[in-house]
Design a protein around this nucleic acid. Structure first.
Lengths: 202, 202
DNA sequence: GTCTATATACTGATAGAC
DNA sequence: GTCTATCAGTATATAGAC
């Protein structure tokens, strides 16, 4: 818990962030939040108008955090290709899923423009950031010039998000890693033994 | 609803399938199921021991249906590459998400071996099926021999599953299609203008 | 087989004491 | 600011009439 670390609103937001990650919006009750935060009903309804507002604060912070984590790698040193590989290989709590992406499977989040907005904006930002890096890499000859930056960026983000699904289904992080290795093998074909087809399929 | 089509157990299962797809397990109450099925409490608890058993019947059927739908394309006519492309481009209710994959974000499903099993088995079957087709395509020279069938299969399934996430986040099916196009461009590089790098990155 | 009652616990929130 | 009390409604069943 956070019972003796920070202010009550802060503890409420952190407890909500954890529960939204573990159980989603529909699966998270105010009672569970209060217990985890070590607060009473009165505190929560004093600082927030209710569950929706508290969840919004939590989602915004989680989205911001994910963005910062990604930027730390994507804006770091290395060639475009290396930065994308670092992003894909970065350490993740795979079996917990993506705290932002998982919200898209929650009916109440998707139904609320306010709650969905931070999710949408974060994934959109990530795609654009990756698209720019792919295009940068194309100018350096790291990626085929026939590729479309935005498409590849969407594929990268989708593979990561779907990797969480495979991992959670199987109960093992291995499936996530397998999907990522496959994507990397497509993005960075190995030379000199590489023999990708030079003609379209028959 | 199904009030006058089939047997009561059947209506209960179909109503549960819809609700699990829309709202997940934690977001689906027996009351909602009964209303959608047009049945009373007594009927449900006469035919099923409770929500978990009913959900299990629903999940099993949904998993089986997804498998049959995939097999219809993957076992159909065409070259390996064409069949994979058909699978990726097949019509989908993108904004509704994947009725099987979305269950992996549900804490109660993941916590229950019985409920998770059909999900795991279906996604696992799909990966193995795709891996075999990729390897078949490699023998025909459609895919680079340096690729790993299981890895590419995991990437394909992950991209589809993650595509749903992107689509639901943005509220538009376009993001799904963009990710799929990116994957296809990586899987089937265009000739003769294809100029993927012949050496690893610097 | 299906229905209506009944039961216990939880959900999400409000009221008012301290 | 935080607490406890209270509340109408829901979640997930069980009991027993028909």
């Amino acid at each position: 818990m956070y019972s003796d670390c920070v202010s009550t609103p802060e503890r409420l937001i952190e407890a909500t962030r954890e529960l939204l990650w573990e159980r989603g919006y529909v699966g998270t009750s105010p009672k569970a939040i209060l217990q985890r935060a070590g607060a009473g009903q009165g505190s929560m309804y004093h600082h927030f108008t209710g569950k929706p507002e508290l969840a919004l604060a939590a989602v915004r912070r989680t989205a911001q955090e994910m963005r910062a984590t990604a930027e730390a790698v994507l804006g770091g040193p290395g060639s475009p290709c290396e930065r994308i590989e670092s992003y894909l290989r970065r350490e993740r709590d795979v079996l917990r899923g993506c705290p932002v992406g998982r919200l898209t499977m929650d009916p109440e989040v998707v139904a609320s423009d306010a709650l969905r907005a931070p999710v949408d904006e974060t994934l959109d930002w990530l795609r654009e950031r990756l698209a720019g890096i792919v295009e940068e890499g194309q100018e350096l000859g790291e990626f085929g010039s026939a590729l479309d930056g935005e498409e590849i960026a969407a594929t990268i983000v989708a593979t990561v998000q779907g990797g969480y699904v495979l991992a959670r289904a199987s109960g093992s992080a291995a499936a996530f890693d397998t999907g990522i290795r496959g994507l990397l093998s497509l993005l960075t074909p190995r030379a000199p033994g590489h023999d990708s087809p030079t003609r379209p399929r028959t």
